[in-house]
Design a protein around this nucleic acid. Sequence first.
DNA 1: CGTCATTGATTACAGACGTAATCAAAGGTT
DNA 2: AACCTTTGATTACGTCTGTAATCAATGACG
Lengths: 122, 122
Amino acid sequence: MIERISEAELAVMEVLWATAPLTAMDVAERIDPAREWSASTIKTMLGRLLAKGILGHVEDGRRYLYRPIVARADYVAQESGRLVDRLFGGRAAPLVAHLAETGQLSDADIAELEALVRALKA
Amino acid sequence: MIERISEAELAVMEVLWATAPLTAMDVAERIDPAREWSASTIKTMLGRLLAKGILGHVEDGRRYLYRPIVARADYVAQESGRLVDRLFGGRAAPLVAHLAETGQLSDADIAELEALVRALKA
DNA sequence: CGTCATTGATTACAGACGTAATCAAAGGTT
DNA sequence: AACCTTTGATTACGTCTGTAATCAATGACG
């Protein structure tokens, strides 16, 4: 079981899922500036992600290079499954139905879904 | 914007979404016994949900009858949208693709999806 | 009328989270 | 050799969450 990743931690992970390994400074430079985080805050996030086993690090002189241990796809699978379990009784189709009913599916989404379903049936 | 509902609070909401209005005792009786919650805990949850504006209450003698103010469908829509935004760049089709790739779609799901897509195209 | 039980309100407290300052070590600079 | 800068570690602190005890009011019961 992958440990939960908080909202703020996720921002750090997205950077490292996009590019790794990186130093703490590198991460800081790539965090959305809108967050206006201090360097300290990012250090804290990195430390907590290390503690959770989401990140790993290798020494590079006096500093660390951080890299993801958990793959984004695995995390996404866990969170998707969690949502489906919590709100749709574990069944995925009602989620899609819900997205459709609430107008959260674009025409492009529907076209993609059609292709997907065709592929899944094959 | 609907306030966030925590995991524990959600258990209380599910009871009230299923049946309402109910007294605190009624809610306690319907909470999954596996949680082994004390009556106090349920009172706390009800109080917090009231404070968040998720629940409302009407007086019934010396006690309250609680009822949802936020509809389950609205909450589900918000949380589904939040997941899609956070992990799929706001597009729903990749979520379905992901569920499919990770084997989280049953044959029944796929059949339902096929029917859904056909309906959506119409 | 006095006591018990019920019920919402208040208070408690540890852990997680968001955000950050401070500290200590260690390498670079003069 | 002395000092500055970088960097991870430690500490801080307010909020939220999970879980609950305690308190105060009020109605029920004898």
